[in-house]
Design a protein around this nucleic acid. Structure first.
Lengths: 223, 223
DNA sequence: CGCCGTTTTGAGCCTAGTCAATGTACGTGG
DNA sequence: CCACGTACATTGACTAGGCTCAAAACGGCG
C-alpha cells in the first residue's frame, strides 16, 4: 500500500495538470494518465481521492483469498467512482488499456457537496446510477444462464461505447469479461463463437471488435 | 400499478401517523404498517416515496420475464431504501413478515438534502453503504461456491439481527435465501444440513432459528 | 521470423439444478 | 380435539450446464 501511494504521490508533480472537468459547474480536479494495467487504488487503501473517467476504461474489482476475482463494474468516459462511506476503498481500481482520469480530493467532498448544488446532484446521481447498475448486475450474476449473460453484456457495451449502437471495440480481455459475468474465459469464448454461428454477432479477427447483427434476438435472450 | 398505488393512498388516512424518525435531525415522515408479503412498490412504479425500516424486514427484488427472481437486498431496522435517480423504482419491495416503515416524500428530498446537512449525510452514507453491500454481494454471486455463499450469508445475518452475534431468528424463507444467494431452495437446505452435520451451526426445528457454533470455521469458508 | 499473450476448441468431470416424494409446522373448521 | 389443507422444508435420484485440464490457433510485436 505504501509503495502504491508513493507511486501515486510521485506521479502527481510530473503528470498533474489542474483542469476544468467535463461538467462546467464541477470544481477543479487533477488530471492523470494511467498505463495499461496500472492500479489506481487497491482494496483497503486510504480513500484519499475519488475519480472521473475522461477516456479509456477502468475496472473495479474484488478478490478472494485464493485469487478468484469479481469485476464489479467497468467505468467508462464520464463515470464517477471511488467515493466511499468509510475511510478505505472497498475495492481496487485498475486501468484497462491507457486511461485518463480526473482525481478529486475526498477531503473536499463535503464542502463541495455543501456549496455546489450542481456538483452535489452529479455525485448523488452518479452514486444512485451505480447502485442501479449493481442491482441489475446482481440479477445477471444470480439468475441468468451463460448466453443470457453474454447477450446482456453485449447490448450494454454497445450502448455505452458505440456511436451507432451496433459496432464497437471492447477495451477488455476475455478474462475481464469472464470475471465480470461470473463465468470462465472458456465459456465466454464458446458463447461468443455460438453467437457468431447463429448469426447474432460478427467478430472481427483479434476478437475485440464486435458487431451486433441481430439485436432483436439478443434482446430476447436478455430476457 | 394503479391498484397498488390506490391501496397505498388509502392506507395513509387510516394508518398514517406523523413521526419523528429514529435520527432526531431527520425530518418527519409517515409511518406505515405492512403485513406479511405486502408489496410496498413494484418495479416500474413511480418513485413517489422512499423508506426507512423501523421494524421487520423488507426484500427488494427483480424478476426476469419467466419468473426467475433475484433478491438484491434485505433491508432491516434502520436501513434506508427506495431512493432513485430516475422517476421510477427499478426494483420492487415487499414485506417479509409484518413490517413497519417510515415513508418520506421524494419530492421533498432535494430540499431536505439542501437544508439539512445531517439528513444529507445520512442519505449519502446509506446509499454508499448499499453500494458497498452490493459490490460485496456481486463477489458472492459471481465467484463463491454454495457453502461459501451460505457461510457469508449466515455470518452477515448474525451480525445484523443478533444481539450476541451467534443466535438469531431468520425472518425469511428458504426460497428468499435461495433467490438472494443465486441458489435453489434444495441447495440451501442441503447446505444447511451439511453445516449441522459438521457442527458448524445448530438449527432449531422450524428451520428459522439458527445458532452459530463454529464461527471460525464459517469465516474460513467465507474465504 | 519467432516469441508471447490471448483466444479458441476439445474431452471429461463435478457442482448445483431438476424432478419427485416425504416430512413437518401451523391454522381452520368440523 | 383432531382431521384436513396448505405452505414450507428436507431428502433422494438423476441430469446438465458450465468448469477444469489440455492443446492448438491466432495475432501483435520485437
Amino acid at each position: 500500500m505504501q509503495v502504491r501511494n508513493a507511486a501515486l504521490a510521485s506521479r502527481f508533480p510530473t503528470a498533474a495538470i489542474a483542469v476544468r472537468p467535463a461538467l462546467a459547474t464541477a470544481p477543479a480536479g487533477i488530471q492523470m494518465a494511467l498505463r495499461q494495467g496500472e492500479e489506481l487504488f487497491g482494496e483497503g487503501d486510504e480513500a484519499e481521492f475519488f475519480y472521473e473517467v475522461v477516456s479509456g476504461a477502468i475496472r473495479s474489482c474484488k478478490l478472494l483469498s485464493d485469487g478468484r476475482r469479481q469485476i464489479d463494474a467497468f467505468h467508462l468516459r464520464g463515470d464517477i467512482f471511488g467515493i466511499e462511506a468509510g475511510p478505505e476503498h472497498r475495492f481496487s481500481a485498475e486501468a484497462i488499456g491507457d486511461v485518463t482520469v480526473i482525481a478529486y480530493r475526498r477531503s473536499r467532498l463535503a464542502a463541495l457537496v455543501q456549496d455546489d448544488p450542481a456538483f452535489r446532484d452529479r455525485i448523488m446521481t452518479a452514486t444512485l446510477r451505480s447502485l442501479e447498475r449493481a442491482y441489475a448486475h446482481m440479477l445477471l450474476l444470480g439468475r441468468k444462464a451463460a448466453p443470457e449473460k453474454m447477450a446482456t453484456f453485449l447490448l450494454d457495451m454497445a450502448q455505452r461505447l458505440s456511436k451507432d449502437d451496433e459496432n464497437f471495440e471492447l477495451p477488455m480481455t476475455r478474462s475481464d469479461i469472464a470475471d465480470h459475468l461470473g463465468l470462465t474465459i472458456e465459456t465466454v469464448s464458446r458463447t461468443l463463437t455460438q453467437f457468431v454461428r447463429s448469426g447474432l454477432i460478427r467478430l472481427l479477427p483479434a476478437g475485440r471488435s464486435i458487431g451486433l447483427c441481430n439485436k432483436m434476438a439478443l434482446r430476447k435472450l436478455d430476457a
